[in-house]
Design a protein around this nucleic acid. Structure first.
Lengths: 171, 171
DNA sequence: GTTAGTGCAAACCTTTTGCAGCTCT
DNA sequence: AGAGCTGCAAAAGGTTTGCACTAAC
């Protein structure tokens, strides 16, 4: 398990490996990706009911600052919380369906190319990069089409406003 | 001024053009880019002291949902607030210096290429995309180098922790 | 004249901070 | 032993909501 890599990295930085951190590290690394603080907290509490939410935040902050995990927004799909994933060697974009919430990852050379171009163009030293793409997945495109039509047909209440409402995106 | 385009777009959606919205629209469109809600609020208040902060949030939300402005995080440089810019035809990445806070914009074909690849690869319908790159600008790289060395030299207090602290990034 | 939009106050949600006590190393 | 870490409570920061009043069309 890759969590060992993280543990070693932390130890070499003089960070204490507490019971709480062991739990959180395991969860972040093993559980499916893109956990937010609250979810991580709930999972951790199952293993240690005493573990406090604050510890989760403190640990995430530390991991983020150590460059061991990346913080994502995922287009604020479910509110304004942040999501976390262990940092991969390979840069990737997150593709988020605004209807079903599914998150896909996309690896491709345009990302590396972009990186190189920015470094050259600005003489910039890149520490972290994040690409998030929001839209509708193949499956939801047709469902959304139906929803839009249904909404436009039924309520003869407001007229013009109706159209724009279909562009609204869950916050 | 481009704000007219936005106004027309709103009118065609049946959105009322109030005095408050006129003020906010002008500001968003004319003022330098990347305003956050609070700054926008302060600017707007100079023109109308009665204008409420809540109206700013409501207006931004509406513009965002109408696809007229884009919401940015800018790597959470100054906290967790969001930044806004009128949506450009041309997609671009935001390059943020983590030391001085300067934000550069980068236009380049890798962004279009990435977009096309994601659409093809997943059969995805892209509604919005965001690329943010954090690091150190040419100017701050040397300054940071000095700061890091100074920090490593002076305080002989904590030992190992010292090294990791240099990796810490302003939140 | 309607209905959308505004202001105000209060709530909400996520994240941070202060401090006393606990625990890794 | 002792600095680092945790838990608890409380605060902070950003954003949203309920409701009565106002103003745009």
């Amino acid at each position: 398990m890759a969590a060992i890599g993280i543990k070693d990295s932390l130890k070499s930085q003089g960070v204490r490996l507490t019971r709480q951190r062991e739990i959180l590290l395991e969860l972040i690394d093993k559980s499916g990706k893109h956990l937010d603080a609250e979810t991580l907290f709930e999972l951790a509490q199952k293993q240690d009911p005493k573990l406090n939410r604050v510890t989760v935040y403190r640990t995430l902050k530390m991991l983020k600052e150590s460059g061991l995990v990346d913080e994502l927004d995922l287009m604020h799909m479910g509110g304004d919380q942040h999501y976390y994933e262990t940092r991969l060697k390979q840069e990737h974009a997150h593709v988020i369906c605004l209807r079903c919430g599914k998150v896909e990852e996309f690896f491709g050379e345009p990302l590396q190319k972009l990186r190189r171009q920015v470094e050259q163009h600005f003489g910039f030293q890149i520490m972290l990069a994040r690409t998030e793409i929001g839209g509708y997945c193949a499956h939801c495109q047709v469902l959304r089409e139906q929803e839009v039509e249904a909404a436009a047909a039924l309520p003869p209440t407001t007229t013009a406003k109706r159209r724009s409402a279909t562009a609204a995106v869950a916050k």
